[in-house]
Structure formats: structure tokens, C-alpha cells
Amino acid sequence: MQEKKNKSWLSFLLEVIVLVALFTLVQYALTVGLINQSYQINLVTMCINIILAVSLNLINGFTGQLSLGHAGFMAVGAYVSVILTNFMEMPFIIGILGGCIAAGIAGFIIGVPTLRLKGDYLAIATLAFGEIIRVVLQNIDYVNGPAGIVGITKLTSWPWLYWTAIITILVIVNLMNSSYGRAIISIREDEVASELMGINTTKYKVLAFIIGAMFAGLAGVMYAHYFYIIKPDTFSFLRSFDMVVMVVLGGLGSTTGAVIAAIFITFLTFGLQKYAAMRMVIYSLILIIVMIYRPQGLMGSKELSRKTFSRIWSGKK
């Protein structure tokens, strides 16, 4: 027992060391100028995509509620944070918290009525709400309507991006490996049975939706404070589809899969920068082919964890 405890402490320490090392390595490369401008953008997009994919996976993959409105929450986070930092000149951390909370509130407002719907109806309703957020932003003069906000101070830096992405992953992994996580997964498995086992399914669906929305908001904050400009059209349902591609490719219900897919899609987009239309053709083929031949995605619901590593280490299958 004591030995087991020591071992888990050891592997925890090892994980922290790996995470800090990875961070320091990239930070060093950035400082000495090893990473050029376009790769820097790639790095930023990657972290943002990880946050988006992992958080959407909580809703679509773990809870089993197909949402097509994630870009809407990203928009709320982006706009609210920019209002706080640029219009009201508050510190970045306030912008981050404000953006997340606002997106979470939007998630609550949208989640409560729509989560009564099932399957494809829910998908369409979330798509509609996402689009309504965009249209509303287009009609608010305070944020310059369709033209959007230009000249946002660049506050997003590597440390912010890296650690917020890590926090996102940690929160979702910890949540899912708990009684709350099991309750959430049971909704995906069989909503009626879950409810009859004493689980308030509505409450947990809304909870997953709020947490997912908050992190989408976080991604929006990071995005806005790096790319200088945001406008309503940046957050159209096509962006939501991008996120769905990542989640589907990685495997609905696998955080590891979501991270891998987010990294892969970022590089794919980067490689096909000059061929934007071709990129979308490839995306669409990924969706179709994955659904037909491997509907569980790359990872299925499997995760890479300490257990997997120790299993590989000891040569067991």
C-alpha cells in the first residue's frame, strides 16, 4: 500500500517535470527566435484548438449531446473579454475570467431550454442559437456590428496559452474520472436508465454544457488577444463544424483523441493555408470516411493514461 502511494507520487512528479520541461523548451525556442512568425501562429492556433476540441468533446463525446454551436460561446468569450480589456482597460486576468463567466452564462441560458431536445433536434437548435449570437453581435453598434473590433491589444502569450490549455485538459480529465464524470457518461449511454438510477440528467447535461461553454469562451479570449481583430463572421457555424471535425476524428469521448486531433487538424490547416477550399474538401472527407469506417474515431473512448504507459512499459497488452 505504502509502495503504491509512493509510486503514484513519483509518476505525478514525473508528469509535472515533463509538462514544465515542454513549456520551458518552447519558451526558450521562442526567446532565441528558433520559431518563426508563421510557426508561432501555428503554435497559438494549436493551443486554442486543443481548448476548443477538449471542451466540445465534453459535450458531444462524453455527454453525448451533439452541439453545433460551440463557436457562439467562443464569440461571447472573445467579445466580453475585449470589452473588459480594451474598452474598460482592465487587466488581462479580468478579461479571461469575465470572458469565461459570460460564456458560461450563455451556456446556461441556451442549455436549459435546448437540452430537453434530443439528438438531431438538439444539434439544429444549438446551431440556430450559435447563429443568433452571431447575428445579435452584428447588430450591436457598441462592438461595431459586422465590421467587428480592430486593434485589440496583444496580451496572449505562450505561458498563458500553454497553461490554460493544460488547465482545460486537467479539469476535464479530473471531472471525467469521478462520480460526476460517470454520471455524465451514463447520460450518453442510456438517458432513461441514468435518470432511473437517481441521476438528475438535466442538471448534469446543463453542467457539462456550462463547463464546455466556459472553456470555449476561454479559447475565444485567447484568440481575440492574439489575432488583433474579431468580427461576428469569425464565429459562424463553419467554425463550429471545424471543432466537430476535431472531436469526431479524435473519437467522441476521448480527451486524448481530442488533443491529438486538434494538433493534427492545426497542422493540416497550416499545410493547406494556400488552398482554403481544398482544406474544407479534406475536412468533409474526413467526416464522411471516419463516420463510415471508424465511427468511434481514432481513439474511440480510449485514453492515454499512466496505466497505459505502465502497461506498455511492462510489456503487457
Partner: peptide, 17 residues
């Protein structure tokens, strides 16, 4: 109506939630 894709023990654990 079990939670089909979950392990046997997780099926029971959910009841304690």
C-alpha cells in the same frame, strides 16, 4: 438497459452517485 460501453463496476458505481 445497462450502460453498455462501460465496465461492469462502473455500471454499479453510477448507482451510488
Amino acid at each position: 438497459r445497462l450502460f453498455k460501453d462501460l465496465s461492469v463496476i462502473d455500471n454499479v458505481k453510477i448507482a451510488f452517485h
